[in-house]
Write a protein that binds this DNA or RNA. Sequence first.
DNA 1: GGTGAAACGACCAGATT
DNA 2: AATCTGGTCGTTTCACC
Lengths: 169, 169
Amino acid sequence: MSLPDLTFDVIDRRILAALQDDATLSMNEIAARVGLSATPCWRRIQKLEEAGIITKRVALLHGPSIAAGVSVFVSVRTNQHTDEWLKRFAEVVSAMPEVVEFYRLSGDIDYLLKVVVPDIAAYDAFYKKLVSKIDLSDVSSSFAMEEIKYTTALPLDYMKVDKRPATSV
Amino acid sequence: MSLPDLTFDVIDRRILAALQDDATLSMNEIAARVGLSATPCWRRIQKLEEAGIITKRVALLHGPSIAAGVSVFVSVRTNQHTDEWLKRFAEVVSAMPEVVEFYRLSGDIDYLLKVVVPDIAAYDAFYKKLVSKIDLSDVSSSFAMEEIKYTTALPLDYMKVDKRPATSV
DNA sequence: GGTGAAACGACCAGATT
DNA sequence: AATCTGGTCGTTTCACC
């Protein structure tokens, strides 16, 4: 789903950058940071939310502290390709809380899952649960030995920015 | 980095669940939801932040609207394994804003990157930039055709929970 | 753990540049 | 469009029970 094509200016981009990094900033802090006063800044943020550009605000947790410190990437290949099977597969997998990301891919791997568990034993249990629920022809797992980078901040560098006297959003 | 082992009770878990899902909830809303009044609830959240369990609060954006709608998974195999090379690799890749996740893996693939770009052409440019910066023996890319699930919410199901008196409802 | 209250920030309206 | 001012309302935060 792609939304109505909007145009942004530099200020909008700065606002998004700030909020992507820290959603606890007060209106005054954001306003100061982007070079605006509080009110127009607030209005812009309202619009960005209404337009669905800002989708939600969430707290991020430290995995290891809550027994969710091990990430596993699961590659799935299948020979089943009916709509029926696919629908069920998507539902079953999406419902599992350990699965934090789930994509259909191009290339020789059909699906990729990112799974978060406390340890290898728990992954084994997860794996068994998974394969018991659906028929998968080929599943292969890789453990993340090290998380070198993880960010929820999308690159804003590709945003088309209107140089205009700010008729934005 | 794993933090001092704390014990949680059911209330803490509920608080984390709420905040993982929606960080805009007011103290009163959270308090009501977890069965507590605002102040003790606020104190718990303070502690969870101080302890580093809650790491940050961020806004999530709608990728397609900001020209960041295409995810690519990049598998890297290398024969270089010196600390020197590795350090440089980690630095160079981490500094690229298109790279939103970056792991060292077990198994036959050494590194996995999740890269976000606006389109295939931009990925091609990214790829060229990447390989120009560091020597990589084997790089293979898969495009996400469909994002079936993406959540920043870690599973709380594995948290060890103290059944202690701890609470009144 | 709870209560009450002061301090603060969000939100909105009106007037102005 | 942006800014400023003012005022209300809800929230956060803290001293105290």
